[in-house]
Computed example of a mutant assay.
Amino acid sequence: MILVGQMDSPFLRRVAVTMNFYGIPFERQSLSVFADQKALGAINPLGKVPALVLDDDEVLFDSQMILDYLDETAGPDISLTPPAGEDRRKVLRIATVALGVAEKVVALNMETRYRAGGTTDPRLVRRFEGQVGSGLQWLQAEAPEQNQDPWFLGPEMTQADVTAACALTHSVEKRPELFPPETYPALAALRERAEVLEIFKSSPFEEG
């Protein structure tokens, strides 16, 4: 299998970490959404990452579609996302908010770092920053406190933890001022616990 994209994408990185967790080997094709638009467009018509090229050349788009395939391949006994019920809904709820935080950090960077001088819309900047802050506050309230179980749903890691950790590291690397650890101590601790694991260290954040 070939995982297409760069490791500064939290969406791609959560797929890579999940594949590491399941022991599914993969190659990387490090294409940039900016510098490699033509090559990327030949793989994904939207020119987005991640994409996963399967061994039979079928291509999967979007991290959630890819994770659904990986969960099915791994089987319900070790799947990071519960197959049904309240736990499944909680994992997906946390992952959705974490992905939303990552999406707004990306949007904020696009608005403040890639626009021509003087064309940044301060209203959009305030809105994106507010959405990041609201998402982080919600995740902080859901995160385990000190002396509790280490992960969102208890002693075992789930996709909620993988996605949140990837999104938080992306925030730290791209907009550290929005994620002061003293404001979000439970989230900061969860991120640190995750990033020392081999499944994360094997696919580290890398600036594209």
Rank of each mutant, 00 (worst) to 15 (best):
33 V>H: 00
197 L>P: 05
96 T>L: 11
74 A>S: 11
120 T>K: 03
176 P>I: 06
168 L>V: 06
168 L>D: 02
189 A>G: 08
110 M>W: 06
39 A>I: 05
126 R>L: 10
57 D>Q: 15
91 V>W: 04
26 F>V: 00
98 A>C: 11
113 R>Q: 14
79 S>T: 08
186 A>T: 14
26 F>R: 08
27 E>F: 04
204 P>Q: 05
160 A>S: 10
95 A>W: 01
76 P>D: 10
202 S>V: 00
208 G>D: 09
97 V>S: 05
155 P>K: 11
94 I>R: 05
196 V>L: 09
63 S>G: 07
5 G>E: 02
143 A>W: 12
185 P>M: 09
126 R>M: 09
156 E>H: 10
138 W>A: 15
132 V>M: 14
186 A>H: 15
39 A>P: 04
2 I>H: 11
185 P>Q: 12
12 L>V: 13
177 E>G: 15
4 V>A: 04
171 S>N: 06
115 R>Q: 14
203 S>L: 03
87 D>P: 01
133 G>F: 08
194 A>S: 14
97 V>T: 15
125 V>L: 01
28 R>Q: 13
60 L>I: 09
78 I>W: 00
139 L>S: 11
90 K>F: 08
145 E>A: 15
26 F>W: 02
30 S>L: 12
206 E>Q: 12
57 D>K: 12
136 L>D: 06
95 A>G: 15
85 G>Y: 07
91 V>R: 03
75 G>N: 07
114 Y>P: 02
10 P>C: 05
28 R>D: 04
155 P>E: 14
106 V>Q: 14
47 G>A: 07
193 R>E: 04
1 M>L: 13
72 E>S: 15
163 T>G: 02
11 F>D: 01
142 E>S: 12
105 V>R: 06
43 I>H: 03
80 L>K: 02
83 P>E: 08
22 Y>C: 07
185 P>W: 07
50 P>N: 09
2 I>P: 00
199 I>T: 14
76 P>H: 06
154 G>D: 04
115 R>M: 07
141 A>N: 13
104 K>C: 07
56 D>P: 08
34 F>S: 06
139 L>T: 11
52 L>E: 03
73 T>I: 01
155 P>L: 09
95 A>N: 04
172 V>F: 01
60 L>K: 08
68 D>Y: 10
143 A>V: 13
138 W>I: 11
41 G>N: 01
118 G>L: 00
31 L>K: 02
161 D>N: 07
159 Q>L: 15
182 E>M: 08
128 F>C: 00
152 F>R: 07
138 W>D: 11
104 K>A: 09
109 N>Q: 12
83 P>A: 11
54 L>R: 08
201 K>T: 14
94 I>W: 08
94 I>C: 09
168 L>Y: 04
120 T>N: 04
55 D>C: 08
154 G>K: 11
61 F>S: 03
26 F>Y: 15
71 D>H: 15
115 R>I: 01
79 S>W: 00
173 E>W: 00
144 P>Y: 11
138 W>Y: 14
154 G>V: 09
103 E>W: 08
201 K>F: 02
3 L>V: 12
68 D>K: 14
150 P>D: 09
185 P>V: 11
121 D>T: 01
144 P>C: 11
121 D>N: 15
44 N>C: 07
128 F>E: 02
19 M>G: 00
162 V>S: 07
